[in-house]
Nucleic acid binder design. Structure first.
Lengths: 200, 200
DNA sequence: GTAAAACCGTATTTTATGTTACGGCAACGG
DNA sequence: CCGTTGCCGTAACATAAAATACGGTTTTAC
């Protein structure tokens, strides 16, 4: 299969995996069901991904890379830090509470070996943390915010923006929030951050 | 079996269920393994709880009731609202990020039917929300805090106190935080809350 | 004290799925 | 144009666990 076709085929298979995962959960997402939905054979799935966890790890890695790409696009503007945050916030909100991210978190929760969770943490939170750290430090350099430890500032921002939304989504007690919610939460988080980390 | 013995036996069985759940995850927690660990027969498990989900739903409900009981004990003092929060915070932190609560959240995430998650949300968050609402409103009545919508004040407090700790615990990327962390987080949350909701 | 009910321990049935195997078809390279 | 390779679709195998059944024993009720 030519490279472009194969890449396209992988996307279709992984899209099918998301569909089945969201419908049936990790344990209920059988390889056969995924293969049938993608009109692929399970032999192909095993050849390409090794085993079930390999397939979902691939989802995790690819999704994290996409999230990171989205955010980096925002970061490379020369806007001031808080402006960046105001456009970054809603996007981050949507990415972290969206169906795909939640499905992956659910899968990681169900994987008893913890490997999926480790991958998710490493390529997810640990990957976007430095990006946010850069923004925070730029804000400090410009006198927009004041804080001693960058890590705490980033953590505070994430708490204010996302809070417990992910866990509530993961246990299925909350539907995907509309974009308006993300915009509102982002504004509120930014406002609160400005108050709590106000320069002297 | 006499009532007291039966109640004791249920506790033993449910303790065994926690053990196996924490060791093997929801999918890996077989009814037989739980029965053997409790030196019970699976027939008894099925007779008492109906099926696997019933057993874990029982865990959820009982755990939630215990959490609520702990909190209510604090609430019925005549301390001022913020003092209540300062003793309630660390306890709430420990209960929500403790091994048991996390194991239950993990089970709810793995249950594809969503029933466990619904029960967990209903008897968990929805149950403690009104308790916190009472504290918040008392704080407002006493002029310690100022806010328009109680719900938002409670949500803000929970975001500041817990944030994304639960989801990080659920995917296995974080160990149970020590009590000192809870105390620190509680102090910080209270301080931040006081700033953000400062009376005019 | 005894009969019935409840429970234990284990075997069994049933069902589901991860994984492998294979015949047939299409695409690709020379 | 043809052989090889890769993929599809389905079948088959192995395993594991949910749920049921049952003989033997303990507990309960009267």
């Amino acid at each position: 299969m030519r490279e472009e076709n194969r890449s396209k085929r992988q996307e279709e298979i992984e899209a099918a995996a998301y569909d089945v995962l969201q419908a049936k959960g990790y344990a209920g997402a059988s390889m056969l069901a995924i293969a049938k939905r993608a009109r692929a054979s399970n032999e192909t799935l095993y050849n390409w991904y090794g085993d079930k966890r390999g397939l979902f790890q691939s989802l995790v890695v690819r999704n994290a890379a996409e999230v990171k790409r989205h955010l980096e696009a925002e970061l490379d503007t020369d806007h001031d830090a808080l402006s960046i945050l105001s456009t970054l916030g809603p996007k981050l909100f949507a990415l972290l509470t969206g169906d795909r991210a939640i499905a992956l978190n659910r899968a990681a929760a169900a994987d008893s070996t913890g490997e999926l969770g480790a991958t998710l943490a490493k390529s997810g939170r640990a990957a976007i943390f430095p990006l946010l750290a850069r923004v925070m430090e730029r804000a400090r350099d410009d006198g927009q915010l004041a804080f001693a430890r960058t890590e705490e500032a980033v953590g505070l921002y994430l708490d204010l923006l996302i809070g417990d939304l992910q866990i509530r989504r993961v246990i299925g007690s909350l539907a995907q929030p509309p974009a308006a919610d993300g915009a509102r939460k982002s504004d509120q988080a930014l406002r609160h951050l400005g108050i709590l980390l106000a320069p002297a």
